[in-house]
């Protein structure tokens, strides 16, 4: 369960202000976040992940108030519990596919690579259909392959929450459906929470709930 209550946030020197009185996202649900550009969708994801700190209020994930965690604890929370998927993939250009997937293990010592993880990596790479692309560098992959690789990286530590920021924004219609299906399948199979920022209204019917940032309402689909 993700709970945001009495939350206020603003960027220093900016007119932008985000105010959320109460927002609950239940465990294992899939949620779409829609709204105009600059309405605060990405900010919401960053607040849930503990990258941004609210001016007031709280962000609870399960029983943990993310705002009360130390920097280190917040980083460890992100690496263990959150999988990020970005619109522009954010793959590391100088690492091949496998090293990109393993990046979380290389940048944070709180998670350790073991035999089980290796099997898990093989599985997800297989499910994403990129098992034979792991030796390739990002510039050698298509957009669809890059996003699949980025999803593998997001899922490598078996997160309980996936925060996807317009994950299909750079993909063709065929790839869009495939990528979203992969994310839905992971969420359902692992009882993970999926929060996806999207501008693609055709996809909204597939989500359990929708957060509309234009009027900050939550609609159950």
């Amino acid at each position: 369960m993700i709970e945001l209550s009495n939350l206020e946030f603003h960027y220093p020197g900016s007119d932008f202000k985000l105010k959320i009185d109460a927002l609950n996202i239940s465990r294992g649900s899939t949620t779409a976040v829609i709204g105009q550009s600059g309405s605060g969708k990405t900010t919401l994801l960053n607040l849930i992940a503990g990258i941004l700190e609210p001016f007031s209020g709280s962000v609870k994930v399960g029983n943990t108030d993310v705002c009360l965690l130390s920097d280190k604890a917040r980083r460890n929370f992100r690496i263990k519990d959150i999988g990020f998927v970005f619109q522009d993939f954010r793959l590391i250009s100088y690492l091949n596919g496998l090293d990109n997937i393993l990046l979380p293990f290389k940048i944070n010592d709180s998670i350790q690579l073991n035999g089980e993880t290796n099997i898990w990596i093989k599985n997800i790479a297989h499910e994403m259909g990129i098992e034979n692309k792991l030796g390739k560098y990002p510039h050698q992959l298509s957009h669809g392959e890059k996003q699949r690789l980025a999803i593998c990286r997001a899922l490598v530590a078996r997160p309980s929450i996936i925060l996807a920021d317009e994950p299909t924004g750079n993909l063709d219609p065929n790839n869009k459906t495939n990528i979203m299906n992969l994310l839905f399948a992971y969420a359902r199979k692992n009882n993970a929470t999926l929060v996806t920022v999207t501008h693609d209204y055709d996809m909204l019917k597939d989500f359990d709930s929708i957060i509309d940032f234009n009027d900050l309402t939550i609609d159950k689909v």
């Binding site: 992940a49 990258i51 920097d71 280190k72 980083r75 460890n76 992100r78 690496i79 959150i82 990020f84 970005f86 954010r90 590391i92 250009s93 990046l103 979380p104 940048i107 944070n108 990286r153």
Partner: peptide, 17 residues
């Protein structure tokens, strides 16, 4: 900058970068 910020977003510390 973008690459290092990505690492930070995922869970890296500034010390690590």
């Amino acid at each position: 900058k973008k690459e290092l910020y990505t690492m930070f977003t995922i869970g890296s510390s500034k010390t690590k970068t």
